[in-house]
Nucleic acid binder design. Structure first.
Lengths: 377, 377
DNA sequence: GGAGTTTGTAAGGAAGCTTCACTAACAAAC
DNA sequence: GTTTGTTAGTGAAGCTTCCTTACAAACTCC
């Protein structure tokens, strides 16, 4: 599908407005003249945009800049990041839905959760809806910008869950439905994808070309290229959990036997790299657990090498328990990718654990709202 | 690097103008009312845009639409694809530079080539420049929109060759330089990348999520996602030639021995999948050449599987001699990718040979110009 | 021939950005 | 203490771009 869609002057306005918010979000309070310089727009236009943002309450004047330089002192304006709330929900866990009220900077203000008790389908939607309503009351002190939801499964750009087997959801227009019933903009996306977006928005991910590998019940991945989430033609980008990494044909010393995967095939990455699998492997023989982790890391590295090469990624983040991921596993993965790619590609690559780990999924969901509602990335 | 850059009304205008050209290019002659319907702009705006395009000569009125329906008969307007020329140059070959004069639809009008005779660096630039001048005279019957050049190496979005070892070019602002000396807009990009763009623009690539694997002296790849070329943070996306696909640790029956690669490492994809390697392999024992090709295909499939999964690609094109690529190699690659990815991903995947093969590189270079100069993709 | 439909254009208006001109408020130099 | 130069922010006029409304032209169908 080739890019289509007309571009009206008002879209340009919205873009420029996001540019201002983007700058204020990432660089902190600035003067109007600063904004003009860094966006390339004139001071007149910036003044106009800022006055609208102030009248909407998103931005406030913060007084005169302290440092005295030559010329008229600047009036600082800043985003009121603490005066609005974003609700975030993480549906990654099969048993409990975890939610939080957050400020625009990603600070958690309150937490709520709900148990699924094995419910799926419409019943699971009801639990989610109740949790959201619960969060809405918890956030009643401040206006709520929107609700972000990270869910496992394949989800299209409009927030329709195309397929989420674990929740029993198929072709479910979740975002649309919740937006209607809750009266607040709701965004839904794949959990690994939101994770990547969260790291890009809140985390220390500086450069472009970021891939976040999320290790939980299974493995997922999200990729950010050119500041945009890669979704893929069928919205199924990032589904690397079921790539074969253990061949049953070339067993070699030290390699694990290809295990049966939930998908019905053998030797998927997910049979090695997932919390259940890692816990099983490390608990059994604590003796050689480092060796096991390194072995999994090597398998991950083998799978990553072609992706890193094809996309010229600069950073791969592993998200999950650092005690499992941040040791031999990470090191082996990095070493393996470097071994298997050309120096120009592999040498500059960084593999590290996510900077938001504990609340990574929630931050990602919040970033979804920031991105959709304010254009901030 | 996060997306920045102001958006002025005139940029919107340029975008909408491209939208019109895009529609005319891909859907053929249309009425103004048709254009209005498919772009979402009003008939008034379309009339205005079309009148500008007509005054520039890019578009012409073609008379009344034959089919008589109810209402006032429509006046067809169409892009004057045959009344302009694009020059394309392919630098993939180490010995000869191949160039062509093409119409906007990619039809070759004239060919020219030049021998490098081992020249590199500035001397090679001089040969290229001469070839371009030669093409310009050959194209003198019609206005030339621009020149597109596909070159091996790493090339940044501005057309600066960051590194092209085979030509001895490093940090060479080739596009800028040739634009200045030739007085025509010049675009330069990696040959595999332009190839992908060409397939997307001219070829039958319908869906999104396209990867083109170009097999020549070496292997390269170009990826088109969301209608845009993936360049990567260091402009090195697509460099899959030096991904390790043969492990020296797990030799198994039927596997080739990991060969020394030009990059100094062993077992790179390029040591198996490149014209010299394939020719050597198939010439030696014609007996089992199918088996050898299938084996290479399997190795390619192993490398592709993670990429296809991570990006949810829908189509992989193999570009090169069909007699080598379009048989057992292609089939083995497809089978292997399907074996090694989850059904949702692999089942819909198509692997085929490029539809532009003979002049694929040239078409890609031409597409570069169309894209840059007219916004047509 | 009239009614209905579709195409294309003209006129007027709203939105968005720019340039030009101006005031305000400061530091540094004399 | 005054002058000079710099920087910040705003107001007015103007250009571009698109839209809505209105209308004429040209066809089919009845």
């Amino acid at each position: 599908m080739r890019p289509t869609g007309k571009l009206l002057p008002e879209h340009g306005r919205a873009h420029n407005r996001s540019l201002v918010l983007q700058h204020l979000f990432h660089n902190g309070p600035s003067s109007r003249a600063d904004l003009a310089r860094s966006t390339g727009l004139t001071r007149v236009t910036i003044s106009d945009l800022v006055s609208v943002l102030i009248s909407e309450g998103l931005v406030a004047e913060l007084g005169i800049r302290p440092e005295g330089k030559v010329g008229k002192p600047a009036t600082l304006v800043g985003m009121r990041t603490e005066d609005f709330h974003v609700l975030a929900v993480d549906l990654a866990d099969d048993a409990r839905l975890r939610g939080a009220v957050m400020t625009l900077t990603g600070a958690v203000v309150a937490r709520r959760s709900a148990s699924l008790d094995g419910r799926t389908g419409a019943a699971a939607v009801a639990v989610l809806e109740e949790l959201c309503a619960d969060l809405l009351t918890a956030a009643s002190t401040r206006p709520v910008i929107g609700i972000g939801i990270g869910s496992p499964g394949v989800i299209d750009p409009q927030g329709t869950v195309i397929s989420a087997p674990n929740r029993g959801w198929y072709d479910l227009p979740l975002a649309q439905r919740l937006t209607a019933t809750l009266g607040v903009p709701v965004y839904v996306a794949n959990d690994a994808n939101t994770h990547a977006l969260g790291e890009f928005t809140y985390g220390g991910a500086v450069g472009d070309g970021l891939m976040v590998v999320t290790v939980g019940q299974g493995v997922g991945a999200g990729i950010v290229l050119d500041g945009m989430l890669v979704r893929g033609p069928n919205s199924a980008a990032g589904e690397i959990g079921h790539v074969t990494v253990v061949d049953d044909r070339d067993l070699r010393a030290g390699d694990p036997e290809p295990l049966l995967c939930a998908c019905g095939r053998h030797g998927c990455l997910e049979t090695l790299l997932s919390l259940p699998a890692l816990r099983r492997a490390t608990a059994a023989g604590t003796e050689n657990s480092d060796a096991v982790l390194a072995s999994v890391g090597r398998k991950l590295g083998v799978a990553l090498a072609p992706v890193v090469s094809a996309l010229n990624l600069s950073e791969v983040l592993l998200s999950g328990p650092p005690e499992l991921l941040d040791g031999p596993l990470r090191e082996a993965a990095l070493a393996t990718v470097r071994e298997r790619t050309m120096p120009l590609i592999g040498q500059d690559l960084v593999i590290r654990t996510g900077s938001l780990d504990e609340d990574g999924a929630l931050s990602g969901a919040a970033a979804l709202v920031l991105n959709g509602q304010l254009g901030v990335t």
